[in-house]
Amino acid sequence: MNEFVQGLRLWFAPERIREEGDTPDYRFSLANERTFLAWIRTALALIGGGFAVDQFLPELAWGVRAGLALALLAAGVLCALRAVNHWVRCERAMRRGEDLPVSRFPTLLALAVAVVAVAMVVVVLFGWEGR
């Protein structure tokens, strides 16, 4: 938890990253930046999916539609915030010469997407229309 707070402080005071360790090869930093962007795109795709569920499935009951959209949007928000956190932690680990941080976030995200997909299959099969 303490480490999380420390990481959070780094979000808003990035010059602190430069105080410790050595500057890594710029190519590694750029690769880290591309990973960050890939996560941001994942977040945007999830948010776009949330919009799409709401706009292109009007025959679904409101509760089902809102639930699916909210699940996708929440996953998108988490993904975007986590992208910044992971980027900062990787940058710091590279400066300190430590191993890169491991995380169970990809697994959780995959499970969440799988749940949404199964929910969609159920909706399509049993046709929960707004009646």
Partner: peptide, 8 residues
């Protein structure tokens, strides 16, 4: 990105 999700 988060702002767009909040609007949604």
């Amino acid at each position: 990105t988060v702002a767009l999700a909040v609007f949604a």
